[in-house]
Structures are given as C-alpha cells and as structure tokens.
C-alpha cells in the first residue's frame, strides 16, 4: 500500500492507505482524527470540510493519495494550544451556532476559509458561502449570527 505523509494541523503524519482511500477515511481511521464528520459521503453536506493547502475541500471527495505532501487543517487544530476555543468556535457557542453538533466541524472549517478571504462578509455572503454545508437541525440563523460575531460585526437578530 502506498505511504502518504501529510502535515496535519502542524505535525507531520504518515500512514499507509489504499489508493481508493478518501481523505476523510484516512483522517478518521488511520490518524484517529474523528472530528471530521461524514454525513453524506457524496459531496453534498459539507460535514467533512477540511483545508488542504489552505483551501476548503470536501474530504470525502478527494483521494488521500492526492493529499500526499499537503498541509491539511482539520477541526482538531482549530482551538488554541491551551485548549481554549478559537474566535469562531467561541462565537458558535455564544450564538447557538450548533444544536446536535454534527455539521459543526464542517461549518467551522468553511467559516474559517470564508473569513480568511473575506474578513467582514455580509450576511448574504455568509449564506452564499455556506451553500455546500447542510445543518439538519436547521440552525442556520445561529450559524450566520456566530460568523457575523466572529468577524467583529453585530449579529443579525432575525432572518432577513
């Protein structure tokens, strides 16, 4: 089996995977990083979003061998070194951006990618960017509020 080496959340990690192993499975099953969730496994829901070389991708729809040599960031690397939540995570907690939490790792990783490119998005831009992230608990307003707050803007009070 091919051996791949990735820099995951700042640490070099190697694993032996089959060519057909998708990145989400490599992270969860070979590296024990189960924060990356698998909702649909068909690139619809966004629960598996991670960053590969700084870009948001659906880890269920990329082969692990394609990430050989890449920098990969997952939800496990988002909190500060002392374990305290980063600004987006804290905002999700403060603004009820999650209910069951299943979609949350993907939401946070998508939000982080958005705010890197667009530090002060409008509510419409946030909704547009999250088009590929589905929340079954229908917590969208809380999610949008959290991302508004994390970008230093006052959170919308009601849906437009």
């Amino acid at each position: 089996m091919p051996k791949i080496t990735m820099n995951v959340n700042g640490a070099s990690v190697s694993a032996e995977v089959e060519n057909r192993t998708v990145l989400s499975a490599a992270l969860r099953e070979e590296m024990g990083l189960t924060g990356t969730h698998i909702g649909c496994d068909t690139s619809q829901c966004g629960a598996c979003v991670v960053h590969v070389n700084g870009k948001a991708v659906k880890a269920c729809t990329m082969f692990a061998v394609e990430a050989d040599g890449a920098n990969v960031d997952t939800i496990e690397g988002q909190a500060h070194a002392d374990g305290s939540l980063n600004i987006i995570q804290q905002a999700f907690q403060d603004h009820h951006g999650l209910q069951c939490g299943f979609c949350t790792p993907g939401m946070i990783m998508s939000a982080a990618a958005l705010l890197k490119d667009n530090p002060k998005p409008t509510e419409a831009e946030i909704r547009d960017y999250l088009e590929g992230n589905i929340c079954r608990c229908t917590g969208y307003q809380g999610i949008v509020n959290a991302i508004m707050a994390a970008s230093g803007q006052s959170a919308a009070i009601a849906a437009e």
Binding site: G46, K58, T61, S110
Partner: peptide, 9 residues
C-alpha cells in the same frame, strides 16, 4: 458552480 469546496477541486 456548486459551492466553494467543489470549486476548489
């Protein structure tokens, strides 16, 4: 096209 993650791949 699609969503941001689809466009990145």
């Amino acid at each position: 096209i699609g969503d941001p993650a689809v466009r990145n791949r």
